[in-house]
């Protein structure tokens, strides 16, 4: 299971990006994207922004769940009050599913990207990132739509990823 997480500003500008793999089920926390897919991820993520803009007015919830999919890539979205989008691209492993016994896989977060467990795990991840994002914008020197470069923020996102995904 590989993840690509990005925070997108109000002008569709990226503020932060982070790539990681699952730490559950004995995962090592490394992403397994191929070099080709890595460039594609950004396109896939940004192409889902159109759908975000449609969905955001149908519900007041911050967590918009899985809103888009492109082949084996699923996109989940979380929208902050200030119209900043958190997008998470998750890609269940295609080859790994076959090699791991199916009984274990059925309960893993990665195996079924649309299951309630996965939704809940991603929601927890987003909520934790949101909390840290709000702390980041509380800095009087931070202006909306500025890139978030703080290494502490990055490590907090990484910790949230390890904890929930």
């Amino acid at each position: 299971m590989s993840y690509y997480f990005a925070i997108i500003g109000t002008q569709d500008n990226p503020l932060f990006e982070y790539e990681f793999g699952t730490s559950k089920q004995g995962g090592d926390g490394q992403s397994r994207f191929t070099d080709q897919a890595r460039h594609l991820n950004q396109f896939i993520l940004h192409s889902s922004l159109d759908i975000v803009e449609e969905v955001q007015w149908t519900t007041g919830q911050l967590y918009l769940k899985a809103i888009d999919r492109f082949f084996n890539n699923y996109i989940s979205c979380f929208m902050t009050g200030g119209s900043i989008k958190f997008l998470l691209l998750h890609q269940p492993p295609t080859s790994a599913i076959l090699s791991v016994p199916s009984t274990r896989n059925s309960t893993s977060i990665g195996a079924n990207p649309t299951s309630p467990q996965t939704e809940e795990a991603i929601k927890n991840f987003f909520t934790e990132v949101y909390e840290n994002y709000v702390k980041a914008i509380m800095s009087p020197f931070y202006k909306v739509n500025m890139e978030i470069k703080n290494p502490v923020f990055r490590s907090r996102v990484a910790a949230a990823g390890r904890k929930y995904l």
């Binding site: 007041g60 919830q61 009050g81 200030g82 949101y130 709000v134 914008i137 509380m138």
Partner: peptide, 17 residues
């Protein structure tokens, strides 16, 4: 910034845009 701060201080079920 206030918008996000006040939203996160709401209890989880009231956190709506």
């Amino acid at each position: 910034k206030l918008l996000d701060l006040l939203l996160i201080r709401e209890p989880a079920r009231n956190q709506t845009r």
